[in-house]
Design a protein around this nucleic acid. Structure first.
Length: 405
RNA sequence: GCCGUGGUGGCGGAGUGGUCAAUCGCAUCUGACUGUAAAUCAGACGUCUUCGGGCUACGCAGGUUCAAAUCCUGCCCACGGCA
């Protein structure tokens, strides 16, 4: 397990490199396709591979609940279990602390469209406590399963044990992902807690993974404040156990606003060591990914391509559109003219629209193929541009078309 | 021909004197979705509107009533039964 840096974007933090894993290399920057429950929804691993995806990310919380991490351990890890033989990542379950906790029942997302006011209801932001499914304390998180209501508890140690069983090549320290509505004080509290958990994660992981098969990434938090973000990055970068073990890379977590995503990432990556990979967690949409790449992130993952696909939204180089809109029922063009994906080379908008209206399962599959292909291609193109010293030109061309049509 | 039942918005189907432009479901239209509580969710859905409201509507035509989708009369239509 290692990371090698091959090329830097002159004048920015952006770079291209390779992460070597026991299941193959990941050329970075790379987009990890999300397969939360050991399946990329609506797609077979063959399809995912054909689209050019290099790595699949699954979720600790979900796989712990179903089918249980022991079963996956016995299957040889979630990769073999799902029939994906390339590199893999698992998230720690930390994000569910947010989505089942402070964000529960709220219309709060990872990337807020505008600067939101701090919650008047709760310093941590979001809903009243009695409605949520997860509650955080200094030692861990107690949560109720969204599937059957049963109560469970995650600690940093437990997350490491489960992720060890799930067997991904790259795993994350257990962290607390905060709401963008949380107060500064709460962001600081959560960040300090995340740092304490980071050390516990590191210690427990090194007990389990003596041969260092997995890369463990520490997760930077700190909300939208520059001082906290920088402090978090510095703290994690220098964190080490008594035996000298350190993180193999870093995740950048938490929530952002659309406006400050780039700057927040920049603050963090200015502090993080250059020789270790950085994963921008849960991002994202095309423009956000390019921003992340420019500011020095190597890995991305996001549910957007597959989720919006299943809901009928199609990525194109001139922006997104909804295939279910009436005008596409008779449109005999491919989803995006010129696209080389399987869907675009075999089917029309009218056909895909029909599948959506008829509620056929293939609708989500064909749309997902296109959107994942689109996103992977975008990142591949950016990587190539970095190697060719044309990144800014590449980004400018993309952004102009994508956002101004 | 007689008897019975029923005709409500694109469809199905509530409502059986006032709070009904009419519950609800489907369809339709539009929007949202960023470490997947998500093949999900939200809004609109007679018509016009200066967004206060106005107008036209519950098979058709009359009638009763302050007030009718709801009660009465006739007609038309559908389904079932008997001749």
């Amino acid at each position: 397990m290692s990371f090698s840096l091959h090329k830097k974007i002159p004048g920015s933090l952006g770079r291209a490199g390779v992460i070597h894993t026991p299941h193959g290399d990941i050329q970075t920057p790379a987009f990890a396709v999300v397969g939360t429950q050991a399946t990329v929804k609506a797609l077979t691993p063959d399809m995912v591979k054909t689209m050019g995806a290099q790595v699949v990310l699954a979720n600790t919380y979900h796989l712990y609940l179903e089918p249980g991490d022991e079963i996956i351990k016995n299957a040889g890890g979630f990769g073999p279990f799902m029939g994906w033989h390339g590199p893999t990542i698992t998230d720690s379950g930390g994000f569910q602390v947010f989505s089942l906790g402070a964000a529960f029942g709220e219309h709060v997302s990872k990337v807020a469209t505008q600067t939101q006011n701090q919650s008047k209801k709760n310093p941590e932001g979001g809903t009243k406590n009695n409605e949520r499914l997860a509650r955080v304390d200094d030692e861990g998180v107690t949560f109720r399963s969204h599937r059957d209501g049963s109560t469970h508890r995650f600690t940093p140690e437990r997350s490491m044990e489960i992720q060890w069983n799930l067997g991904a090549d790259i795993i994350f320290a257990f962290d607390e992902c905060t709401s963008p509505q949380a107060s500064y004080e709460y962001q600081k509290t959560a960040m300090d807690r995340t740092h304490a958990w980071a050390l516990q994660s590191l210690i427990r992981h090194n007990e389990l993974d003596k041969e260092k098969k997995q890369m463990l990434l520490g997760v930077v938090q700190g909300g939208q404040s520059e001082d906290l973000r920088r402090e978090s990055a510095r703290t994690l970068a220098s964190l080490q156990t008594e035996s000298g073990d350190m993180f193999d890379g870093f995740g950048i977590g938490g929530s952002f606003t659309k406006e400050d995503l780039g700057t927040a990432v920049k603050w963090v990556n200015e502090e993080l060591p250059e020789e270790k990979p950085r994963h921008l967690l849960g991002i994202g949409e095309p423009g956000d990914v390019l921003l992340g790449i420019e500011h020095g992130c190597d890995l991305f993952d996001c549910v957007a391509p597959t989720r919006i696909a299943r809901n009928g939204t199609i990525y194109t180089h001139s922006g997104t559109y909804s295939i279910t809109n009436a005008q596409y029922r008779t449109d005999m063009q491919p989803l995006e003219p010129g696209c080389t994906c399987y869907t675009c080379t075999h089917f029309t908008r009218a056909y895909v629209a029909h599948l959506f209206h008829a509620k056929e399962m293939l609708a989500g599959t064909l749309a997902s193929i296109h959107n994942v292909h689109f996103t992977v291609q975008l990142v591949d193109g950016a990587r190539e541009a970095i190697h060719n010293d044309t990144f800014f030109e590449y980004k400018k061309n993309f952004i102009e078309k994508y956002y101004h049509n």
